[in-house]
C-alpha cells in the first residue's frame, strides 16, 4: 500500500532555515559550546543508573543526564569496557559488562583480542532473558565456543561466552535480555505484521483463530492490548484471562524462538 505523504505539511525546509542563520551565528554557538567544560565524569555510571531506575521511556531527563555522562572524559579503558576477559582453565571467559552497549563495541573488544565473534543481546520476554536465542560457530581445532546462560536485564547481565584459547574461527551469539519498559521484543525475519510468526495477514484473525493456529504449532502466546492506538489500561501487556476470545488481532511479533506476542483489542481492523 502506498502511504499518503505528509511532506507538503512541512512547515519549513532545511534550506529555508539555512538561509536565515548567519555564519556568525553558527560559529558563535559552536564556539560557546566547545568552550564549556563538561562536568567531571561520574565514577560509577552504573550505580547512578540504578538510582534512576528503569523507566527510560518516561524519565527522559534523568536518563539523559545519566546516559550522557558516559563518554567525554575518556574513562580508563577497563572502566569503559563493554566486556571483561578472563582466562580460566584453557578458556577465555568473556562476560558482558555493559548490556546496553552497542554490539559494535563488543565486536571491537573481541577483535582487539584477535577474535571474530559477534555478540548481541536482543530484547525478549523475561523468561527468555539470559538464554541463548541464536548461536552459530565455526569448526575450529581449538574446540567449540560455549555460551553460559544466566540472568540478563537492562542494567546487569551475567551471561558469558567461553572461548577456547587459540580459537580463531567465527561465531555469532545472541542472548536474550529483558526488554525495557515499552520496548518491542526482537522480531523474526518478517517485516509485515504477523509474518514473523508465520501468520501474514494476521489482522484478519480473531484471537480465537490466531491462538488456535499458534497452539497447534506449539507456540506460546503473550498479549499486548491495543485500542485506537493506545495500550491503556494495560501498558505492560494484558493478562490472558482479560483477553476476550472474540477480540481482533492487530499484529503478531516474535517474542523469542517459540513465543508470539499478539496485539489484540476490541476494535476490528479496517
Amino acid at each position: 500500500m502506498t502511504r499518503i505523504t505528509v511532506g507538503r505539511l512541512n512547515p519549513v525546509t532545511d534550506d529555508e532555515i539555512a538561509r536565515l542563520v548567519s555564519t556568525q551565528s553558527r560559529d558563535e554557538l559552536a564556539e560557546h559550546i566547545t568552550g564549556t567544560v563538561p562536568e567531571p565524569e561520574p565514577r560509577s555510571r552504573r550505580r547512578r543508573r540504578l538510582i534512576v531506575g528503569i523507566p527510560l521511556v518516561g524519565a527522559v531527563t534523568a536518563a539523559a543526564v545519566v546516559a550522557f555522562s558516559s563518554g567525554w572524559a575518556g574513562p580508563q579503558p577497563a572502566e569503559a569496557a563493554a566486556l571483561s576477559f578472563q582466562r580460566e582453565g584453557g578458556y577465555l571467559v568473556v562476560r558482558v559488562q555493559d548490556p546496553e552497549a552497542d554490539p559494535e563495541r563488543y565486536r571491537e573488544e573481541f577483535r582487539q583480542r584477535g577474535l571474530n565473534i559477534n555478540l548481541k543481546l536482543a530484547p525478549t520476554s523475561p523468561d527468555k532473558a539470559g538464554q541463548v536465542l541464536f548461536m552459530e560457530d565455526g569448526d575450529d581445532p581449538a574446540g567449540r565456543i560455549e555460551a553460559v546462560e544466566g540472568s540478563c536485564g537492562e542494567h546487569a547481565c551475567s551471561v558469558a561466552v567461553k572461548v577456547p584459547e587459540n580459537y580463531r574461527s567465527y561465531a555469532s551469539i545472541v542472548f536474550g535480555r529483558a526488554a525495557e519498559q515499552g520496548e518491542m521484543y526482537a522480531t523474526g525475519p518478517g517485516d509485515e505484521p504477523g509474518e514473523g510468526i508465520g501468520l501474514p495477514g494476521i489482522d484478519d484473525y480473531t484471537v480465537t483463530e490466531a491462538v488456535a493456529i499458534l497452539r497447534a504449532r506449539g507456540v506460546a502466546v503473550e498479549y499486548r492490548y491495543q485500542y485506537r492506538g493506545s495500550d491503556q489500561p494495560y501498558p505492560h501487556g494484558i493478562p490472558a484471562d482479560k483477553v476476550d476470545p472474540d477480540w481482533y488481532v492487530h499484529e503478531g511479533l516474535v517474542g523469542s524462538e517459540n513465543q508470539a506476542i499478539l496485539f489484540v483489542g476490541p476494535e476490528p481492523n479496517d
Binding site: 539523559a64 558516559s70 575518556g74 552497542d102
Partner: peptide, 17 residues
C-alpha cells in the same frame, strides 16, 4: 533546544555513532 542539543553532543561526543 538546538543549543542544548549540541551541548549534549559535545558532552557525549564519544557516544555519537
Amino acid at each position: 533546544v538546538f543549543a542544548e542539543t549540541f551541548l549534549t553532543v559535545w558532552r557525549r561526543l564519544d557516544d555519537v555513532p
